[in-house]
């Protein structure tokens, strides 16, 4: 197995996103590419990444392998790469991860026993969809955060709004379809879902810079799924369980 990236931004974004959820990550490499799926310890959020072989400058994988890393250790190495540096990874016979950063920095990092079990994805229909620029979404999260720890998303036909409510007050942000940052608002059914900013904010900050447009899909009182389209990466899906009235 060997994979070489084109520049370091995508791998940095991926590792940064994963680091918001877990301390240890198990990646799966197959002939098709590299994937990761994992949930935070409380099972509130899940990240599902598929990074196709076509996104790499060089990629080879003769047989499927799993490899586990401590995300903070891996992250430190990856951060030594400049934006244009490629990052090449392979696994040594001594079961170390070989990480070549740029042309001349050759790291070896210990792998960890991977304890990964297969994580399923939530099986739900998505009634509503909002597509908007990640920078706009990041701003909206900031706007809501000043009064609330939770984001409520509401859609009705082709209208939508984001809102939040806390001890100090509340906010409603109507989405304007003429705004060039908003690409689509659609709903098969009126939907309202409330999600924790504690989980949303870090992942949007981590991937936001490399993602252009993001797609939020949800149904009333059901998980939210956000798709980040990162130039070179197949997809990053982020799932977040809702908060519901009890």
């Amino acid at each position: 197995f060997g994979a070489k990236t084109n520049g370091s931004d995508d791998l940095k974004a991926i590792i940064s996103a994963i680091s918001t959820l877990v301390e240890e990550a198990t990646f799966v490499a197959t002939a098709e590419g590299i994937s990761f799926r994992g949930m935070d310890p409380s099972h509130v959020a899940l990240i599902d990444i598929s990074w196709p072989n076509s996104a790499f400058e060089k990629y080879e994988c003769d047989s499927d392998i799993k490899f586990g890393v401590r995300i903070d250790e891996f992250s430190k190495l990856i951060k030594r790469a400049d934006k244009k540096d490629s990052i090449e990874i392979s696994i040594s016979e001594q079961n170390m991860l070989l990480v070549t950063v740029g042309k001349n920095k050759k790291y070896k990092m210990r792998l960890i026993e991977s304890s990964a079990t297969d994580t399923p994805l939530p099986k739900i229909p998505y009634d509503s969809k909002i597509m908007l620029s990640s920078s706009k979404f990041d701003k909206i999260l900031g706007d809501v955060q000043v009064v609330s720890d939770y984001l409520t998303i509401h859609t009705s036909d082709s209208k939508g709004d984001f809102s939040g409510k806390g001890d100090s007050g509340e906010v409603v942000i109507d989405l304007d379809k003429d705004d060039e940052d908003i690409e689509e608002i659609s709903s098969k059914e009126d939907s309202v879902g409330t999600y924790s900013l504690e989980y949303l904010n870090p992942v949007v900050k981590a991937v936001g810079n490399t993602a252009g447009v993001i797609t939020c899909e949800f149904s009333s009182a059901k998980p939210l799924r956000i798709e980040f389209k990162v130039a070179n990466i197949g997809r990053i899906h982020f799932y977040l369980a809702p908060r519901v009235e009890s």
Partner: peptide, 11 residues
């Protein structure tokens, strides 16, 4: 009162 659900509730 709001309660946090888990993703496992939807598997």
């Amino acid at each position: 009162l709001m309660r946090q659900k888990t993703l496992s509730d939807f598997f």
